[in-house]
Every structure is written in structure tokens, then in C-alpha cells.
Design a protein around this nucleic acid. Structure first.
Lengths: 249, 249
DNA sequence: CCGCGACGGTTACACTATGTTACCAAAAAG
DNA sequence: CTTTTTGGTAACATAGTGTAACCGTCGCGG
């Protein structure tokens, strides 16, 4: 998997086993200031979706040993992320388009990059237009080590039930950690998942946020228990995160 | 202009000066239970749009004496109605520009009717998916954190049942928040949803409205609980909004 | 065991976004 | 037409966040 470090109008995940097409799309979109992540199969796709903040998926229908249609349905079943399918130009195309697999748009290979861009923009435009009314918000609350994190109302409570005063950025960071427990997150991932932005070489802003966050949630100042540093790797949230309130001990 | 009065999956407006193509499309779609209206130029198109409830427009880019691209752009500027363009096979540029102008798909002439049908279905399906979420009728009374917001009557009651005196703009803003709970709304969105206008770069009027609204509905003046600011993002209404009066505590 | 280099934690500071007060113009009320 | 209310702009106060710099610590090789 390769990830380009570009800020811009969105982060696009390209799922295609064809190196050449990947490179082509990647270069083209990067030039247009999109952030691009390239993967070659369904497994990598799922991983990338967990690791990055993806705005749109471009999915090849023909992946070796996999069913693109099924991938698309799975994806749609679990999220509302926009999908553009790449299909082979043939008579089959029409039938595929007719299938209700839930993609937002389709494009036959070989294609003109400008057309891809136009369709990307169109899909993102439609999504944006509908973003207002669409959002069905479930009250998501996460629990860990006695703490309670209410994501929807952006509030965080300590084990003794007191509201903890976190700044917006600190809260976002904590949410990302709680949603990715027990795995190492690089600074770049953290930056992407919190701000949707990519980092320059010497960006230490995440370190600062970590430091400030720790000051407010770590009991022991010298031995962090919730957010552990992984030297050379990033940070890892060590606690067990549950979606339900633990039974009182 | 000729209109076929058939009930069915949708009402399609075909804009093409070529009699033969019109007839072809018309017959084909009518056979599939679509309602079809055929017109030959931009003027008739606008009239038809005013007279009927059109679900989708099929627009020929090559109309005598008119610019199909311009028509497409005008259409898109005024509504979100789905558009499928008909283009000449050789003019790839036109197709792309069309997509950039806001068309939802295109089809090169000459085309296979089945292909047209597939694309019509695909486009309508996309729109329908979106529309479902959009078109729920909004309840006129909302409850949150003990407060009661009667949208129709434009009255707002505090937890102790007293009428709160809000100005018109403050009320509008509160309604927007209550209808989009637990999600971050940018200043631009707020301005658009309240006044239907877009903002200049340094517009702080929303900040003022927020400040004034907070003064009237926030208990703690220093730590807002209902309207939380998201630095760099906008504001978020944190409360759980219910359509029904909560059971008495 | 010591020293070096890289990495990460922290402090200080600059900058930017936001909150708020004061003031004024436009709109509504009378 | 006068009074009142509302909403917007300007200006200042304040909190949040990124950058730079300094230092401590960890790993590693000598």
C-alpha cells in the first residue's frame, strides 16, 4: 500500500490490482490536490478504511480472486461512503450498471482521467448536498477504564463521573484513539484521522496534542497508562474499549 | 410537445430536436412504464419543467441554435434534477465538460436503448436513495434537555415551562441546530440553512447570533452545554433531540 | 560503562479562531 | 415619524493550536 502526502479536497482510496492504472489515477488525482491511497485487494481496502479517513472509494470490479460486486455490497452494507466502480468496457457493462449493488457511479475502462475527475466531483457534490438531511446520528458512547466518552455530544467523563474539560482537538484525538484501541497509530494516521490533513516532515503538532491530552487523562504523569508511546512508530491506546457501560464492580 | 400519460417508475423529459430519436426513446420508455414528455428545444424544456413534475431530463447537447452545455449548467444551477446527456460519439470533450457542468451521466449517440434504460435506472436509484433520507416530514415540536421547541408556533419553552423570548434569527438558528443534532455545522452551512445565503470570507454574523443565543439558553455562561464550538469546524448541537415529550423524571 | 544520536516530552511563544462588548444601521413596531 | 428591536460590523479579549527550542531518555556501538 502506498499513500501520497497531499492535502486537498478529499482523501480517495483506489482499489485496483493493476499497477499501471493505480499509478495513473494516483498521479492524476494528486496533481489535483486529492490525497490518494492505493491498494490492490479487498483485504487491504478494509484495512485502509480503518486506518485512514477516506472520502471516496474507487473500486475495480475485476480483482484477481475476488468479486468486486460483493466487495461493493459489503462496503455499502456497512457504511455510506461513496463508491465509484471501474468496469470493463463491454456489453456486460450495462447489465452491471443495472444491478443494484449500491455504487454511486460507474466508469468503463479504459477511461479518460478527466472523466474520472468529473465523476468524482459529481459524486462528492451529491454527497455534500445530501449531507445535511441524511445524517442519522446514533448516540455513540464508548467506555474504557471507567471513563465515558460521549462522541455525539462531545463530552468526556472521568471515572468519578465529572465532566473533563477537553479542547476540540484533544477530544478529536481521544475519539480516534478510542475507535482504534490496542493498535499502533502513526503520527500521520492520527493527523489524517483527526484533521483529514497530511503532515510535513517535521510536524510535531500531534506530539503536542498528545502531551496536552495526557496531562488531562493520565493519572500518573510519569508513566502513561492509556496512551502509550511506541518509539519510532507512533502511539497506541492500551485500554479495552467497550460500547456498553460495564457492570458495576 | 407531446406527453404520454402513463403512471410508472418516473416522469422523464426528453429534450431533442431529432424526431426520430424522440420517438424511439419515447416508445421504448413508455413500454417500460415510464411517463415521457418530449420537447425539441430549451424553451419548451423550461416550460415542461414548470408544468410537470419531472424526475429526470435526457438532454441532447446538439440542439439547433442552442448550447446544450449552457442549458445543462442553467438547469443544474437552479435544481438538483438528474440529467443524462446525449452526445455525439466523437466529442469526448463535450461529455466531460457536461459532467463538469453537473450532468449525472452521458450516453453517446447512436446508443442501444437498453443502455439508456440501464443508466436511467442507475441515476434514478442514486437520487432515490438520497431522497429517502431527505424527504421525511419534519416534526413541528422538538424536545431536548427539558426544553421544548414549537417550530410551527415559533415558540420556545425553558425546562421550567416559561416562554423564552428569542428573536427571529435566534429562533431560526436554534431550529437548524435542533434539526441537525450531534453533528458539526460549519458557519457556511448555518448561514445557508438559516438565511439561505452564502457568506463572505470574514463574516462573523453567525458568531454573534450564536453568542446571543447562548446567552439565552445556556445555563453556564462559561461552559456551553447545548451549543459546542468546534474550532476550525463550526458548531455542534450536543443535546439529544426527541420528537416526543420525554417521560416525567 | 560511556558517549552519541535520534526520538519524544515539555516549555515558551506566536498566531489564529472564537467570544464578547460597543456601536450603528436597518427593520419593525407604534 | 418616533421608538424599539434586531442584526451586523468593528474592535478588543481570550483560548486553542502549531512551531521552535531545549532537554531528557532510549538504544546502540564502542
Amino acid at each position: 500500500m502506498s499513500t501520497a502526502k497531499t492535502k486537498g479536497p478529499g482523501h480517495i482510496l483506489v482499489v485496483d490490482d493493476d499497477r499501471e492504472i493505480c499509478t495513473l489515477i494516483g498521479k492524476f488525482l494528486k496533481k489535483r490536490d486529492y490525497r490518494v491511497t492505493l491498494v490492490g485487494n479487498g483485504h487491504e481496502m478494509r484495512r485502509a478504511l480503518g486506518e485512514w479517513s477516506i472520502d471516496l472509494v474507487i473500486l475495480d470490479l475485476m480483482l484477481p480472486g475476488e468479486d468486486g460486486l460483493q466487495l461493493c455490497r459489503d462496503l455499502r452494507a456497512r457504511s455510506t461512503i461513496p463508491i465509484i466502480m471501474l468496469t470493463v468496457m463491454s456489453e456486460e457493462t450495462d447489465r452491471i450498471i443495472g444491478l443494484e449493488m449500491g455504487a454511486d457511479d460507474y466508469l468503463a475502462k479504459p477511461f479518460n482521467p478527466r472523466e474520472l475527475l468529473a465523476r468524482i466531483k459529481a459524486v462528492l457534490r451529491r454527497v455534500k448536498t445530501n449531507a445535511d438531511a441524511t445524517s442519522q446520528t446514533r448516540p455513540r458512547t464508548l467506555y474504557f477504564s471507567g471513563w465515558r466518552l460521549e462522541i455525539g455530544r462531545r463530552q468526556f467523563f472521568s471515572p468519578n463521573g465529572l465532566l473533563v474539560d477537553l479542547s476540540g482537538g484533544e477530544f478529536d484525538l481521544l475519539v480516534v484513539f478510542a475507535e482504534h484501541p490496542q493498535q499502533v497509530l502513526t503520527r500521520e494516521q492520527l493527523l489524517d484521522l483527526t484533521h483529514g490533513r497530511s503532515q510535513g516532515a517535521f510536524d510535531r503538532s500531534i506530539d503536542m496534542q498528545i502531551s496536552r491530552l495526557r496531562r488531562k487523562i493520565e493519572i500518573s504523569h510519569s508513566a502513561p497508562e492509556l496512551i502509550m508511546t511506541v518509539r519510532g512508530g507512533g502511539y497506541s491506546f492500551t485500554s479495552n474499549v467497550s460500547q456498553h457501560e460495564p457492570s458495576d464492580p
